[in-house]
Simulated scan of single mutants.
Amino acid sequence: MTELSSPVMRLIADEGGRQRGKGRIELLEKIGEVGSISGAAKALGLSYKAAWEAVEGMNNLSDEPLIIRVAGGKNGGGSVLTAFGLQALSAFRRLEGEYQQFLSALREREDFDKFFHLMRKMDMKTSARNEFLGRVKTVNKGSVNAEVILDIGGGNELVAIITQESVDNLELAVGKEAYALIKAPWVIIMAEDSNLKTSARNKLCGVVSRCQEGAINGEVVIALDAGKSVAAIITNESIKSMGLKEGVRACALIKASHIILAVMA
């Protein structure tokens, strides 16, 4: 049996002492029941977009995909939990009771409320649409800045340029687990067969899994290997001029200076 990594269980975060990640766990469970993300979103009162973003986020933070798309069937396909996803769901349900017992014991301490709320303030949430979890592969130190290469799985790597001071503060070293945060407007999309040369150090290629136009800008999501995905916000004009739509191969370009690294305290 594959051992569940701590990042998967870290997906398990919310407020006020409720189970960590309960909303995402409920989404996982409902997808397993109904066999589709749209059906699960409707049942839980979520928008289809919010449900998809939650699924992409979970897959990006997990060592293995938790949910995959399937083709065919009487309804033309849907989404199912992988064996790893079923294991994660089962593990969460087993821990649920113990977690509540743990909180009950903590609440008996008179200083619990004061320090619990302090810890919650330190439980950071970000506005970055793309969040990847990986391990530091290389740290090349310079006099001011450092180059950090993060292995995010599936044969994909991200190169980040951060200050030497940040490397020291985050205690980054080879083998250490770290998060890469990338805002969607910072991601540039180009056709995979383009001959253009760019200064962007990072190039992640795959198949467009979602393409949704807005009033001026649209969101493009590229499915990478190993269940990962990267989202970009680009103009509708760019979407049309590049012929972007589901099933088209494309690449996401990300400047090394546009990647924020973070670690669990």
Score class of each variant (00 low, 15 high):
261 L>G: 03
231 A>R: 09
212 Q>E: 14
262 A>M: 08
180 A>V: 03
221 V>L: 05
159 V>P: 00
164 Q>L: 15
97 G>H: 10
55 V>W: 04
231 A>M: 07
209 S>F: 00
225 D>Q: 13
45 G>V: 06
161 I>D: 02
243 G>E: 09
241 S>W: 01
241 S>C: 01
154 G>K: 05
114 K>H: 12
147 E>G: 09
232 A>R: 11
94 R>E: 15
231 A>I: 08
247 G>H: 07
177 E>W: 05
247 G>C: 09
53 E>C: 02
218 G>C: 02
223 A>D: 12
30 K>F: 06
89 L>I: 10
90 S>I: 00
169 N>F: 12
230 V>Q: 05
265 A>K: 14
86 L>E: 14
241 S>L: 04
250 A>L: 11
180 A>Y: 06
106 L>D: 02
54 A>M: 15
214 G>A: 07
30 K>Q: 15
195 N>M: 11
99 Y>R: 11
183 K>E: 05
140 N>Q: 12
67 I>P: 04
257 S>E: 11
152 I>E: 07
119 M>H: 10
137 K>P: 00
180 A>W: 08
186 W>M: 10
163 T>W: 06
25 I>L: 14
208 V>F: 11
135 R>I: 11
261 L>V: 03
231 A>S: 13
261 L>D: 03
74 K>W: 09
8 V>Q: 11
160 A>N: 07
38 S>A: 14
